[in-house]
Design a protein around this nucleic acid. Structure first.
Lengths: 118, 118
DNA sequence: ACATCCATTAGCAATTCGGCTAATCGAGCG
DNA sequence: CGCTCGATTAGCCGAATTGCTAATGGATGT
């Protein structure tokens, strides 16, 4: 898994990783992803907000973070907005990162694109 | 992958997930994991700190977050401290979460343990 | 046109985060 | 013993995050 599509530039990949993992850092946002997935992958803002204890505006902001990370897509439909999960993206970004650790490191340290130091 | 060991309680699993994803939310911490993995899985605090642009104390704190999340273990050796990556844990927690999205959701929404709402 | 409904945007307070420098601690060496 | 070296702890500060309520925006229905 996680070996698909056009090659993103290293910088782009880094930025995507940052956005995705930042988005995954909050329990409510992880939960939104799960709800979206297990509820057929498509829900309106109101349906999502109804499932959470926090206020609707707060949920709206969480959704915004997920959208900006590319994990979720919005489609305006009449006066409601439909949010849809992008499973591929989740796997492409988070999955690819985790995949580095799956296998033992090659003797020649051919590291992936990291971010600081040598 | 990601189906191993004694069953953690739901609450425990939630807390672990929170700690792990919070730890993964910062680029420097993700980078520490990568360095650890691609450098034989075992480095001293000084060796790690040397690879980063931020100050040593700051790196120490990042390492603390990783340790508390269980992603890294420390062993005191003389006056140095050796940090070692726990790949299994990374996969057990983050991998298991991502695995929920790998397959299409079953018609009967048998959701995993989330955190809020209905 | 007007009222209503779905949803976002604005703006604020409280908290957490991430960086730094200075101080401290403990092990090893001369 | 005293000094140095590896590393963490303490404390400060600015920036980002997350929560809320109130205000606004835009589509629908009467």
């Amino acid at each position: 898994m996680a070996e698909r599509g056009p090659p993103r530039s290293a910088a782009r990949e880094l930025a995507d990783r940052e956005a995705v993992f930042k988005a995954l850092a909050h329990a409510s946002r992880r939960h939104v992803l799960l709800v979206l997935h297990f509820r057929g992958g498509e829900l309106t803002a109101g349906e999502i907000a109804a499932r959470f204890s926090c206020s609707w505006p707060t949920t709206t902001r969480h959704l915004g973070v997920l959208v900006r990370a590319g994990l979720v897509r919005v489609e305006a439909r009449g006066r409601e907005r439909v949010y849809r999960l992008d499973r591929e993206r989740l796997d492409a970004v988070a999955g690819t990162f985790l995949a580095w650790f799956r296998a033992p490191p090659p003797p020649t340290g051919d590291a992936p694109t990291g971010d600081a130091g040598s």
